[in-house]
Amino acid sequence: MASIWEYANPRKFIATANRLLPWVGGLACVALLVGLIWGFFLTPDDYRQGSTVKIIYLHVPSALMAINGWFMMLVASLIWLVRRHHVSALAARAAAPVGAVMTLIALITGAIWGQPMWGTWWAWDPRLTSFLILFLFYLGYIALWAAIEDDDTAADLTSILCIVGSVFAVLSRYAVDFWNQGLHQGASLSMDRADHVANVFYFPLLVCMSGFVLLFVALVLLRTQTEIRARRMRALLARERMA
């Protein structure tokens, strides 16, 4: 059985990603199409919230991936710091914009949902606030990558920032909870309290979530390939300068 670290070889990674991409991407499309159509058109309106509840099919999956995207970056950063696999660092770099966009989607859909429900586009509700802070962390991380020329230096610095940032992000989450008790209807939305949501809502939501997961994986694979090729180009240019 081949070791998992074989995929740390960029060439091998690109080849494997090429084989995987059509499947992951295709499955993501199917899951999203099925999930969203099912969710938007084939479920009844909520007795209290009306049809506005259906934004849940975008809001919850994107929020899920916003957090898991950061978590993936954290794991990739740790792998880079411990095992010095370039692909790992580049995967973290590739995931950042995707995660940032997911966070943005969660924030915007949250605002759109908040308007009819709370009567305001934005409330400093702990969850929304935490996502805003998470978005700021994504921005800082991306900006640091962009600012440093040397790839390995950038990888080291962003990895450490990611780890320190994770600690502070968790801390901020608790701080924000303490700061404002909030209006979020957490109970009706969260996975572990699924019994609060009727099955008619729950199953399409699950399909949407898996669609978002697959979409995230597909985008990160694609972007990691791009980053590897960009890095290869820089290495070739460097070699040309030498000769």
Partner: peptide, 15 residues
């Protein structure tokens, strides 16, 4: 002086 081919052992996978 480093020869160009040392790149291959250094960052081999990226070339």
């Amino acid at each position: 002086k480093a020869r160009a081919d040392t790149m291959d052992t250094f960052d081999e996978a990226f070339l």
